[in-house]
């Protein structure tokens, strides 16, 4: 039981790292959204593994809510992408640097 938990968390941490790296390395807002998606999949795996050890139905309820949150966050991120594109003519986040100090 605990071995399967450790495996799940090991891969969850790996996914989390891959997503974080993608968000840090990329300048493209769309790719950063993909990184965010990978990160949240990592935390989803962590939650189901924890739930299997303690309270599975609570974990399922939590995951369902999390998926709803995730889709709204991604949709809102794409809206932001469209707005960025419309105003600046590109999706390069590094070109957005007028505010400094």
């Amino acid at each position: 039981m605990s071995a399967s938990f450790a495996t799940a968390w090991y891969f969850a941490a790996l996914l989390f790292f891959i997503g974080l790296y993608c968000m840090a390395a990329s300048r493209n807002l769309l790719r950063q959204l993909i990184g965010l998606e990978v990160m949240s999949k990592g935390s989803l795996l962590a939650i189901i593994a924890s739930g299997a050890m303690s309270n599975l139905s609570l974990a399922q309820a939590v995951i369902i809510t999390m998926i709803v949150i995730e889709v709204v966050v991604v949709a809102a991120g794409l809206v932001l992408l469209v707005k960025t594109y419309r105003v600046t003519g590109g999706v390069d986040v590094w070109k957005l640097s007028s505010l400094k100090g």
Binding site: M1, S2, A3, F5, A6, W9, Y10, S50, M53, S54, N55, L56, S57, L58, Q60, A61, I64
Partner: peptide, 21 residues
């Protein structure tokens, strides 16, 4: 992670998903 698993607490397992939600 294996050490973390030792802290597992077995909660209310009887409740179904519907009643939980």
């Amino acid at each position: 992670f294996e050490a973390l698993a030792d802290y597992a607490r077995f909660g209310a397992r009887g409740q179904s998903l519907g009643s939980m939600l």
